[in-house]
Simulated assay, not measured.
Amino acid sequence: MSEKFFNKPFRLNSVLSGAGLQATDLGKSISNHIELIIFTRYGEHRYHNNFGCEIWDLDFELIVSESIWEEKFRKSLLKSITDHEFRIYGTSVHIHITEVENVYPLRKITEIKKKVDISVRALIKTTGEKYFFNTALFLSPLST
């Protein structure tokens, strides 16, 4: 496996000017790959139909039980990370969904969104170091 990792997004103007791609460290490279898994819908990758996660199918699903929704998404993401991110092991995924209310007084609009907090914990294979990844997504704005 290559020991050189590149940052995303790729800056093609750097490549065309001869500067090359911006390098990054192993932890940031793993985080970039996990973000790519989260933001890719199943079937979107032409050569790997099982690359991605289920959040895009769950986003438009009526959430009857938040705990069931969280567990479906957690299992989907854990399976994708386990199947596609080979630089970590002992992976655990934690999902927590909350409602966030934004009030816009000038426009007299209240917007309610679902916020999904995602935490991934694992160990890096080459070093044995602990690896942590945290991010949050907002789903389905409901406005009044």
Rank of each mutant, 00 (worst) to 15 (best):
S2L: 07
E3K: 14
E3P: 12
K4F: 07
F5D: 07
K8N: 05
P9I: 03
F10G: 01
R11S: 02
L12M: 12
G20S: 02
G20E: 08
G20V: 07
A23S: 11
A23K: 13
T24A: 05
D25R: 06
D25K: 10
L26K: 04
G27V: 05
K28G: 06
K28A: 15
N32V: 06
H33P: 08
L36D: 02
R41A: 01
R41T: 10
R41S: 11
Y42A: 02
G43F: 05
G43E: 08
E44D: 08
R46C: 03
Y47H: 14
H48T: 11
N50E: 03
D59W: 06
D59G: 05
F60I: 09
L62N: 06
I63W: 06
I63V: 14
S65V: 10
E66W: 08
I68M: 11
I68T: 13
W69L: 01
W69F: 06
W69N: 02
E70N: 09
E70G: 11
E71P: 00
F73E: 05
K75N: 15
S76H: 01
L78A: 00
T82V: 15
T82R: 14
D83P: 04
H84T: 05
E85D: 05
F86K: 15
I88M: 00
T91L: 00
T91F: 09
S92V: 00
V93C: 09
H94K: 04
I95D: 04
I95P: 10
I95E: 00
I95N: 01
H96E: 07
V100Y: 12
E101D: 11
N102L: 15
V103W: 07
R107H: 02
R107K: 09
K108Q: 08
I109T: 11
K114Y: 08
K115F: 07
V116N: 15
I118S: 02
S119W: 12
V120C: 05
V120E: 01
R121Y: 03
L123C: 03
T126L: 11
T126E: 14
T127P: 11
E129I: 05
F133C: 01
N134V: 15
T135S: 03
T135M: 10
A136L: 13
A136C: 13
L139A: 04
L142A: 12
